[in-house]
Design a binder for these strands. Structure first.
Lengths: 218, 218
DNA sequence: TTCATAAGATACGAATCCGTATCCAATTCG
DNA sequence: CGAATTGGATACGGATTCGTATCTTATGAA
């Protein structure tokens, strides 16, 4: 369990009147970034179960005092790290092109994996038994449900335009893309490759929107 | 964190020559079942991160010595509990009826949730950073991959019979059903309802076997 | 330059957990 | 019935983590 302090991150060459002097301390956002980096690094290397305030402090090259000044609990700190790093589905520009929009939203789900070093869905069930699952809610509220809802909206508009069958504008179909990515991230590799995202769009989500070729299975 | 010892489980009325005498100790499989019950109960109530040998022993109404006689680690104990409780996809009789077989296999995935009190996929990422992820491999090897493979097999046979388009006999399509159930278990409720399984079969997997993305979306 | 603020270092007591050792005794089987 | 096996109880030392307190000092702004 090698904890590598981020010594190199602390020696910054400053600008301004004391230009050239190597700063020894970080402040504000710079420090926050280092702490969040350490959080995801620890999640990646030791997992949620073994992540401790002690270890995050060491990995960030700071002291526990600094962490406790900001957060009362490990869970609060992780939830903040997630809020800071997770992409915002609502920021995705939607164009009205069904394939492009579905693809863009799935890439947002994909981005939630890479932004958190592949640990996002590792954390969804981490807080079992916890009365207020802040981490779990952050992930679900911030990424999963908005993406499923936005995909649903994209499907509804496509149905209104007559591009897809009306029944395809369902929550099940909207959830199918994210479901494939979640499973891939959990079972295969934490970070989902671009090609997989594209094939989920083309071989799962879009086919579900087209009309039935036959009813022979019933 | 109320740990309720299973006192009631220990007073068994014995059969045989000492019939009627209330036994105070459990042995063999009876004891194992109690331990495994305690494991899943603890996973459900405090999560993997907070599950300890001390607590499992207390919840099972036994001593740590009994646990350490059988398992060197918490992970080994959990992996054994899973092997004992998880369903075996290979045991599912396949009939050649596409819908029935896909449904049966998805119900097997569903059973893995209920058999473990909804904790199966909570554990998939529990061992991040661990060199030999016994728990994760148990779940993936025991349920997920066999089910995806068997669904793939069912699809291939259906394609051979000319019931579905050949391109639908793909791993992506085979994985879509389990993906929907995994996501539901993680995001919604740990245990998947029957109706959801049925709608995944009818509204996701089966439609994927007959449809493809049409050219108009490009 | 001065001062307020926040970073960083360190120490500390309490609690928990782990893994082991030892012992007693319930249970089962020959 | 007696012996072997296994269940259960308990104690213990060591390690780790938590959360807090205290102090020094680097940093940035006025």
């Amino acid at each position: 369990m090698g904890v590598v302090p981020a010594d190199r991150q602390r020696a910054e060459v400053t600008q301004g009147p004391r230009a050239g002097v190597v700063a020894t301390r970080r402040r504000g956002d710079t420090l926050l970034e280092a702490i969040f980096d350490a959080v995801f690094d620890q999640l990646r290397t030791v997992g949620y179960a073994n992540l401790t305030m002690d270890r995050v402090a060491a990995a960030a090259g700071t002291s526990k005092t600094v962490l406790y000044r900001r957060w009362a609990t490990k869970e609060g700190m992780i939830a903040d790290a997630l809020r800071h790093r997770l992409p915002s589905p609502g920021d995705i520009p939607l164009t009205g092109d069904l394939r492009a929009d579905v693809h863009a939203l799935l890439r947002c789900v994909q981005a939630s994996f890479s932004a958190t070093r592949g640990t996002a869905f590792q954390l969804v069930s981490a807080e079992a038994g916890c009365g207020r699952p802040a981490i779990r809610q952050t992930i679900i509220d911030h990424v999963v449900e908005p993406c499923v809802e936005l995909i649903g909206e994209v499907l509804r508009r496509a149905a209104e335009r007559g591009e897809i069958r009306p029944e395809a504008a369902s929550e099940l179909v909207a959830a199918s893309g994210p479901a494939m990515l979640v499973q891939y991230s959990l079972i295969r590799e934490p970070v989902v490759p671009d090609e997989f995202v594209a094939s989920v769009v083309d071989q799962i989500v879009l086919p579900l929107t087209t009309r039935s070729a036959s009813a022979e299975h019933r």
